[in-house]
């Protein structure tokens, strides 16, 4: 039995996941999926920034378009050091594709 606090939304439900992967304590389907995933292979969305040129600001915010394996978070962060965008960019544009061969991408979250 694993006890977790759900992080998919601000409610913070207290989940219990038994050995046969049954999730209880959740208020929604997303919570159930999160609980199971967290026990098997925890994943996180990363939000960060990358350098940008030609804009009023020096940094452009980005996020992973899907959760990425938790143990890859710092390695993925390091890759952002090598990214430099040039304005204009649009929200949703790729900043970095196929992070560490996971098929997860960093996408721009603000048009600038």
């Amino acid at each position: 039995m694993t006890e977790l606090i759900c992080i998919v939304c601000p409610m913070g439900c207290r989940l219990s996941i038994d050995d046969s992967m049954n999730v209880t304590g959740n208020s929604c389907k997303r919570g159930e999926a999160y609980g199971r995933q967290e026990v098997i292979d925890p994943k996180r969305i990363i939000t960060s920034t990358v350098r940008i040129e030609g804009s009023a600001f020096r940094r452009c915010p980005v996020k992973t378009d899907r959760p990425i394996q938790k143990h890859l978070v710092f390695e993925a962060m390091k890759l952002l050091d090598g990214v430099k965008l040039v304005s204009p960019v649009n929200a949703g544009d790729f900043a970095l594709k196929n992070i560490l061969k996971t098929e997860v991408n960093f996408v721009v979250t603000k048009s600038m």
Partner: peptide, 8 residues
Amino acid sequence: ETKTGGSH
């Protein structure tokens, strides 16, 4: 400065 590789 962030994103310069130096801070990790």
